[in-house]
């Protein structure tokens, strides 16, 4: 069995006095899409931020492509090929769409086709016309696309995609699902944080379910879909 692309063991994180994660362990293999499910506040976003080094108070083992990155600064993790599309999008509103893409550009990875503006615009045609517009003046759906497009400019091996279906129109969710499947086809591993089960089921092979900062379920997506008790206990509101 080959080494997983991203290997997480006993990850803990806290904000001030409040502990959010109580020892999370999971793997993400090259080329697969894995869902990180759970209700609001279960710790999905915190898991991603802790992996990326955006939370200081964290502990545990994070290995990415064979390197221990748990003490690395965030920018170095990004440069190693771990990209992030946050749930609140966090596009740079003072920059144009093109500038948002350009500052995220990193060198091509050996043996992989680099992400160029052309490839990005082929994936997200809406962004092509909006290139010179201020990112702040885009619709919510377009901003969501820009968030993913910006992440891709770093030529990542893996993408941490945090709730891309949150707060966008159903048609955008549909387009996002297509995009995620395409990216998976291109060989980008995806860790998808989701509450939208049909969406996650459509794109992901495996799933982990979080509840109160601990992993309660891990297995194939099909198994989660069949396990009504698990869904009721940890997912349904």
């Amino acid at each position: 069995m080959t080494e997983p692309l991203l290997h997480v063991r006993d990850l803990t994180a806290r904000y001030g006095a409040a502990q959010i994660l109580f020892g999370i362990s999971f793997d993400l293999n090259a080329g697969e899409a894995v869902a990180l499910m759970g209700r609001n506040g279960a710790g999905k976003s915190t898991t991603m931020k802790a992996i990326l080094g955006l939370i200081d108070a964290r502990a545990g083992v994070v290995v990415f492509r064979g390197e221990h990155i748990s003490r690395w600064p965030t920018y170095k993790i990004a440069r190693a090929g771990l990209a992030y599309a946050p749930e609140d999008r966090r596009i740079f509103a003072d920059l144009t769409v093109r500038e948002n893409l350009d500052i995220a550009a990193l060198p091509a990875r050996p043996g992989r086709e680099p992400w160029t503006h052309e490839r990005i615009f082929a994936l997200f045609p809406n962004l092509r016309e909006a290139q010179d517009r201020s990112a702040a003046r885009m619709s919510g759906g377009e901003q969501q696309m820009l968030t993913v497009a910006r992440a891709l400019m770093g030529n990542p091996y893996a993408l941490l995609l945090d709730e891309p279906s949150e707060g966008v129109a159903p048609i955008v969710v549909e387009a996002m699902a297509e995009t995620v499947l395409k990216l998976k086809g291109e060989g980008v591993a995806i860790l998808l944080s989701e509450q939208n089960l049909p969406f996650a089921a459509r794109v992901c092979d495996r799933a982990y379910v979080l509840e109160k900062g601990e992993i309660r379920f891990s297995g194939a997506m099909d198994a989660l879909m069949r396990d009504e008790a698990a869904r009721r206990a940890w997912l349904e509101v």
Partner: peptide
């Protein structure tokens, strides 16, 4: 300008 607006996100894209 990006770091002025959002330091952490700038780091997350490799700045």
């Amino acid at each position: 300008r990006a770091a002025t607006q959002d330091r952490d996100m700038a780091a997350a894209v490799g700045v």
